[in-house]
Write a protein that binds this DNA or RNA. Structure first.
Lengths: 224, 224
DNA sequence: GAGTCAACGATTTTCGAAAATCCGTTCTAT
DNA sequence: ATAGAACGGATTTTCGAAAATCGTTGACTC
């Protein structure tokens, strides 16, 4: 029998991508229960790879597992937004500081390249086609990854990556709520400039503020 | 058919515990390939729960997954020891600082209780029966968890917990190499005293030093 | 009428076998 | 002799169904 491989090298990998995206675009909403029957229908596969995908998603905080009662989409909350923000400020701030101290010319080149790719796409707004928005998200993630990529600590990097994805669901809210109010592009450019100028403390501070602003823009959403 | 439940509420949970312990005590050594046939024999169950256990272990850094080539025990290295240590110093240091600032009387009581339970067991040494050593490990983990438990950040707490387990394999080496040379009990008591005296910065600094010493004691092991 | 408990339905969890994949070896053609 | 295709064994990955579990419904008792 022939299997179709969309992206990953195993069905479990494909299921991970599919479910993660379905959660991202709101097909499954925070708190929703995730029944295996539905997920199998979505992914066109048996229960085993779906189960493995959910195990990974749970490890990264996207879903919750209740023994013998199945998986559900992790809820969004103001408390978690603040928590994610604070932890990112700690981890990514330090990672950026180290990266600025240790980065070589190669790192500078990666950073400039990543920024350029991101800056070429117009400011994110609600009315953009979703494909373009996905594209911007990917480039945005690549830029932030480039910033910290020279920190020299694989474990810290992995933490940053996971926290970045965990903040992803909140970031999407931020975009649709707060279209063009902030000068996000300017913040990013400033981050790059501080990093290239080897101002480690300044860059770390700017990154923490950058995340603080994103969080602040969302506080209102939860008080409704 | 009747299933035996040793600890967890699902077989996958039991498998997680069994494999984690087997790695801990050295049944499977760093770099070893983990074949499903062996693990099924070890755990007395089918492939499905074993696979789920490995997915969790991989998320926590105990094992590695190579698509279509299976799982293996993550290797130990000097580089990873330094990396884990630095990241723990960052995360747990901050968590402890916050905990000292925010902790209430309840937290103080938990901390004192956890310290007492740990201090009642004689200094860890190589020649202790392994059951007692496991017991000490558990109480040691509980003490460190109590230290940071009032930090108010569930995500940071989860990070600390995972980093603590990840350091566990190295800590075991430390115990068998460096039996009574350090005054570990003294370091722990001092940590508690600083925390109870509400010296947030001092406690955080002491914790970072505590981890630094553990790492230093192990450096030699890898240069052989 | 309130409370207990057994049986049912929905769902998760696990099983055992089939399918797919990888790696090393052999075979073939140049 | 060597590069490359192709077979075979070992192993992972996936499937489809069976078993176990949870929450609920509804009958029965006090």
């Amino acid at each position: 029998m022939e299997q179709k491989r969309t992206s990953g090298r195993t069905l479990a990998g494909d299921a991970y991508d599919a479910i993660r995206q379905a959660i991202g675009v709101g097909t499954f909403k925070p708190g929703d229960r995730l029944r295996f029957a539905d997920l199998q229908a979505l992914c066109n596969m048996s229960v085993t790879p779906v189960r493995e995908a959910l195990a990974r998603l749970t490890a990264e905080g996207f879903t919750l597992l209740d023994d013998h009662r199945g998986y559900s989409v992790a809820p969004l909350s103001l408390a978690e937004l603040r928590d994610v923000t604070a932890t990112r400020q700690l981890c990514e701030g330090e990672a950026l500081r180290l990266s600025v101290l240790k980065g070589d010319a190669d790192w500078e080149a990666r950073l400039i390249a990543a920024h350029h790719l991101m800056a070429r796409i117009p400011q994110v707004r609600d009315d953009l086609p979703s494909a373009m928005r996905e594209d911007w998200e990917a480039r945005h993630a690549a830029f932030h990854a480039a910033l910290v990529s020279a920190c020299g600590s694989p474990i810290l990097l992995e933490l940053c990556e996971k926290l970045f994805s965990r903040a992803d669901r909140y970031r999407r809210l931020s975009v649709s709520l707060n279209g063009g109010a902030r000068d996000v592009a300017g913040e990013h450019r400033r981050l790059m400039e501080l990093a290239l100028a080897r101002d480690a403390e300044g860059a770390a501070r700017a990154l923490r503020e950058h995340y603080g602003q994103t969080a602040a823009a969302l506080e209102g959403f939860f008080s409704v």
